[in-house]
Simulated scan of single mutants.
Amino acid sequence: MTVIVHEDRAALVDRTAERLTALLAALIAERGHATIAVTGGSVGIALLAGLADRAIDWQRVRITWSDERYVVADSPDRNAVQAREALLDLVPIPAGNVRELPADDGTPLAEAAAAGTELLRDLGGIDLTLLGMGPDAHIASLFPGHPGVHESGVAVIGVTDSPKPPPSRLSFTVDAINASDRVWLVVAGADKAEAVALAHSGAPAAEAPAGVAQGRHETLMLLDAEAAALLEEGGR
């Protein structure tokens, strides 16, 4: 895991948007397309908003989500709804390139998770998974002490007891996250400093799910100075 520290939240968002724009351009030039899994949260949505005015060939970008709140499709709690308002409704991305995890239409959560696993299989691999991190070192909807951090054999699981509302969610598993070519953890704020230090220390998944997130080719922890405050200087 490579740690990159920016002076403040605004710089973190701006430079990560710049980094992501460059990555998308390189992937499209190399292979003709790019597939990313985005995240919610205040920093994740700010990052998406920061892409709206950048020169990106949206016709060749496919987007899904590393986790989603299992609520009705138009709920403002959904990461996808927030992402559409911040970015996707503002850029010329084809509707078929936006692959939302299922919304709650009455389908049992376990069946929705299976559909999410099939969706991810159809995408054929993720070039980049973007993740935030909670003050408890959770990523996606994988929370410390919850059994979901140990799930294997599937890409998407249902979470019924999220400590953050709403309680029902869909989430990439650790296996799905770590199958991505690249994983970027984008984290800001003093309230995340202890979690960042714990994740960076190599704590096990049951204690700090963020600490076991690892891309196949690249893993970046992109921080603002407040989130990085408890890291030893040599570990940055």
Rank of each mutant, 00 (worst) to 15 (best):
I4E: 13
I4M: 02
E7F: 09
E7K: 15
E7V: 15
E7C: 15
A10T: 14
A10V: 12
L12A: 01
V13L: 03
V13F: 00
R15C: 00
R15L: 13
E18G: 15
E18S: 08
R19H: 09
L23R: 05
A25L: 03
A25H: 08
A29R: 05
E30K: 07
G32K: 04
A37E: 06
T39M: 05
G40Q: 02
I45V: 11
L47G: 00
A52W: 06
D53W: 05
R54G: 03
A55R: 14
I56V: 13
R60Q: 12
V61P: 07
V61T: 12
R62V: 09
R62L: 06
R62C: 07
D67G: 09
D67S: 09
E68T: 05
R69M: 04
V71E: 00
V72Q: 05
V72W: 00
A73N: 02
D74F: 00
P76Y: 00
R78C: 03
A80Q: 00
R84D: 01
A86Y: 00
P94E: 09
P94Y: 02
G96K: 13
R99I: 15
E100N: 15
L101D: 02
P102Y: 06
A103W: 01
A103T: 01
D104R: 01
D104C: 10
G106H: 08
G106E: 10
T107V: 14
A112D: 09
G116Q: 04
L119C: 02
G125E: 01
I126C: 13
D127A: 09
L128G: 10
L130Q: 04
D136A: 09
A137V: 02
H138E: 08
I139H: 04
A140I: 06
F143P: 01
G148P: 06
H150W: 11
E151S: 12
S152D: 14
I157P: 06
G158W: 06
G158E: 07
D161Y: 14
S162W: 01
P163E: 07
K164M: 02
K164S: 08
P166H: 01
R169W: 02
S171T: 15
F172N: 04
V174W: 03
D175S: 13
N178S: 12
N178P: 08
R182S: 12
V183P: 06
V183W: 04
L185Q: 11
V187R: 09
A188H: 11
G189H: 06
A190K: 07
A190E: 15
A195H: 05
A195G: 08
A195E: 04
A197R: 15
A199V: 08
H200E: 15
H200Q: 15
S201K: 11
A203R: 06
P209E: 07
P209Q: 13
A210V: 10
A210E: 01
G211D: 02
R216F: 10
R216M: 12
H217M: 14
M221C: 08
A225C: 03
E226W: 00
A227Y: 05
A228E: 04
A229K: 12
E232L: 06
E233T: 14
E233W: 05
G234M: 10
G235A: 12
R236P: 03
R236V: 15
